[in-house]
Design a binder for these strands. Structure first.
Lengths: 303, 303
DNA sequence: GGCCCTAATACTCTAACAGAGCATAAGGGG
DNA sequence: CCCCTTATGCTCTGTTAGAGTATTAGGGCC
């Protein structure tokens, strides 16, 4: 469509994957050589990109990829440091963890986003808030300073605004603008917030986390990350790990129960440290019954 | 990433745009030669794809594009009838209608999706429901017939399920599978549901409509489609046009009021047919204050 | 001028649900 | 046998979406 005077440009196209598993209450992602997301040219022979991705990941992880969804297509010039424009079509995939193939490894995602884990008080919270304040105060005019302050307060849940776990990408972008992450051209080095990743992979991961956190609230995708049988506490802890916040136990159980997403297996788990817990399995048939939409797993706030 | 045995494939990449305006209570989209969405190779000289798209559309429509968002990247093989794989990165853009440039024209989107307009009883409702039932009954096994029935009922709000306006894409895909739209390889021609579009453009449009319907509920994007000053009824009718359903007037007003998204201009509109209505304008500053997220414009259900 | 029609604007009622707390049950270990 | 831990079940409350009703202010018509 842009029949413009400018020339069209040579491009490279690749797929890039955010593969998530949850192990021992920690969300983990598949990385390759150092801190890169797995990426590569995509292949003919597959009808769709999803099929291509699925085939590849299943080979790598020996688990079937329960869920795949396209995230975003990144194409800004200069994002790979290359002179050509690189178009990266990113996907989110959910599995359970298996031994990673040679060259690949699983990493907890909070090492890249320590400020996103609000299950306990985040580590560098005070230092980060101070750095954000400093950034706001460095604005050129009173109007800009005010905007920066309220944006930071809103995005990071300061000044009584309440933490919103879905704003992962907005927070990363604010930190990028403020020069508080290594990838930023204005990075000042005053504090180091999390581990940097190659190119803009941390932004892509932020996109994936944001999408997943939003998704678990209205689609029953968590179950793709769970073993076939699980206790309700294990399910809750999986959701808590993803959302980065604690949930109210009685409400969580009530909501799961009334959504009719799970059924008892009859078995129970004794290693709880207290009363044994009943085991449940996901009712796969709900995916057919209520095909798409509406099947919400409501993430009650609080605690 | 897919370091597979299969070869990588030559591809073509293009941008494709769903440009929406609302005029006289009808959502309209910009089309080019017949029923195609505007598309084309993208250009160097712009840092981002969004910038490229914005520049082009503003030239075409003489209105600034108030809002742009990436929709989805379509890349399935065979989608353009071509032998090469075509990657189309689609965008949603919101404007107000101006005279279209040569070759382009504005079309009401419900001509492509008549079943999506539930502001009044949709035209071919009975015929479509019958065709869906026939498709369900043609399933190979009892299990498949049951699944098809419940999926159709859920997706189209039959059998007491309640209409969900967000399921635009799911409905289109179901009709495609059922061979009830012209683009489908199994199209039987028994009934004609809406006007077909080139290639898979109708699917792309469905993606855009679905996204926009979901978006207006939690981000104040409707205002990009409104003139600078408007009455609350005009605003409500714009939302109704997009959502394809009637809203409850008192609730709509209450919600707008408590969201503090608009302010009175002091003027009033006399041509209402009744009591004159106050004029309002969008408070642009809320976009800065509550930068991103959370600013919901709650679309109250019903009548 | 008064009546009526229309639409704008304002207020009230109710059911559902999220958020939060408390009470009881059922294991293991000292 | 008591105590600690976690599982499980139930209750209370404030908020809000959904729905209905009442009043106000114009224009047109007799």
């Amino acid at each position: 469509m842009p029949q413009d005077d400018r020339a069209t440009e040579p491009t490279t196209t690749e797929l890039i994957a955010v593969i998530v598993a949850v192990t021992a209450r920690e969300p983990r992602i598949l990385t390759v050589d150092g801190h890169s997301l797995p990426a590569g040219a995509f292949l003919s022979g597959y009808r769709s990109l999803q099929a291509s991705l699925r085939g590849w990941v299943e080979k790598q992880t020996r688990h079937t990829l329960g869920y795949i969804e396209q995230l975003y297509t990144f194409a800004d010039h200069g994002r790979t440091g290359n002179d050509r424009r690189t178009i990266s079509i990113s996907y989110l995939g959910l599995t359970r963890e298996a031994e990673a193939a040679r060259g690949a490894s699983w990493q907890g995602w909070y090492r890249y986003f320590p400020w996103e884990d609000h299950r306990a008080e985040p580590r560098q919270a005070a230092a980060m808030e101070q750095a954000l304040r400093a950034w706001a105060d460095a604005g050129g005019s009173a109007a800009i300073r005010g905007q920066r302050r309220s944006r930071a307060a809103y995005t990071f849940g300061l000044e009584g605004h309440g933490w919103n776990e879905d704003l992962v990408l907005h927070r990363y972008e604010l930190l990028y603008e403020a020069g508080l992450v290594e990838e930023s051209p204005e990075f000042c080095g005053a504090i180091t917030l999390g581990t940097a990743m190659r190119h803009d992979h941390r932004r892509i991961l932020a996109t994936g986390i944001a999408r997943l956190r939003a998704k678990i609230k209205y689609r029953p995708v968590v179950f793709e990350l769970m073993p076939p049988e699980f206790t309700l506490l294990a399910l809750q802890q999986c959701v808590e790990a993803l959302a980065g916040r604690r949930l109210h136990k009685p409400n969580f159980r009530r909501l799961i129960a009334q959504a009719e997403l799970v059924e008892e297996t009859g078995g129970s788990e004794a290693e709880t440290g207290g009363r044994p817990a009943r085991l449940y399995r996901f009712r796969r048939d709900v995916l057919l019954e209520r095909a798409f939409g509406g099947t919400k797993l409501p993430v009650a706030r609080s605690r």
